[in-house]
């Protein structure tokens, strides 16, 4: 079955890190460059994230994501470079367009931050099985209901898409045109919505009943089929990140 999860299976040490630790890495990677606004720090963190993605052998999967983000970042660079109010120092000119140093430096800061954030998220998303992350969070005390919602989305959305294509085929078999001009496609889309939406509502009702009789709302303390995974160095990594953050704050204040 097609999955909408971006998770890539692997055996690297990044895959073996506790999902909670990877979750902690995201605020860590976002906060440090804010506390210490130096390009060196940003570059260091981006380097770290990219190195981890490389080590996990998932760097290829990040290309489309970064590609999309770069598209937006280019507009940031152009607009800030040309029109930032503080712009004074002319860096270079292409025809009638003038690029300024202040704007470009600011755009660079934004670009680095964005790459940094995306990198940190990618480590979590690409190397952690969604169900592992949710199970870890549920064990830490998150409501199993929220956990269910998060995990089931990854399977139920593709299921709905499969239903949609079945209905499309059924309508096509009855002579509906589904290909061709935009107007034809829009017309073909409407009769699909009814069955898909109503069908989903009915399915949701039935699924809710099936969950009820399987003790979904049971007050009993939940148990788990799998033993809690033990991860090495979780505490050390989490403490390390905390200490580094504190150190960064101290450095910022006193130095």
């Amino acid at each position: 079955m097609k999955s909408i999860s971006l998770y890539e299976e692997g055996t690297s040490f990044v895959h073996d890190v506790d999902p909670i630790t990877k979750l902690w890495y995201i605020p860590f990677a976002i906060l440090i460059p804010i506390i210490l606004p130096l390009f060196t720090v940003s570059f260091l963190l981006i380097g770290l994230s990219l190195a981890l993605l490389l080590a996990a052998k998932v760097i290829r999967k990040t290309i489309p994501v970064f590609g999309f983000v770069f598209l937006i970042l280019i507009t940031v660079v152009l607009i800030q470079g040309m029109f930032k109010p503080e712009n004074e120092t002319v860096l270079f000119q292409i025809g009638p367009l003038t690029m300024y140093k202040e704007g470009l430096l600011f755009a660079l800061t934004i670009t680095l931050r964005v790459i940094n954030i995306i990198g940190a998220f990618m480590i979590l998303v690409l190397t952690t099985k969604p169900s592992d992350l949710v199970e870890a969070l549920v064990r830490k005390g998150m409501s199993p209901r929220i956990g269910y919602v998060v995990v089931s989305v990854f399977q139920i959305i593709p299921e709905m898409m499969a239903t949609m294509s079945t209905i499309t085929d059924a309508q096509r078999a009855r002579g509906m045109e589904t290909e061709g001009k935009l107007l034809v496609r829009i017309k073909a889309f409407l009769p699909l919505l009814g069955p898909v939406v109503l069908g989903s509502l009915i399915n949701t009702k039935e699924r809710a009943m099936a969950l009820e009789v399987r003790g979904f709302n049971s007050q009993a303390p939940k148990t788990f089929l799998y033993e809690e995974k033990t991860y090495q160095f979780s505490k050390i990594l989490q403490m390390g990140m905390l200490l580094l953050t504190v150190a960064a704050v101290v450095w910022r204040i006193f130095l």
């Binding site: 169900s131 269910y148 995990v151 089931s152 399915n203 039935e206 699924r207 099936a210 399987r214």
Partner: peptide
């Protein structure tokens, strides 16, 4: 509809 959808 009796498949929970949360298990692999």
């Amino acid at each position: 509809t009796q498949v929970t959808g949360s298990k692999m």
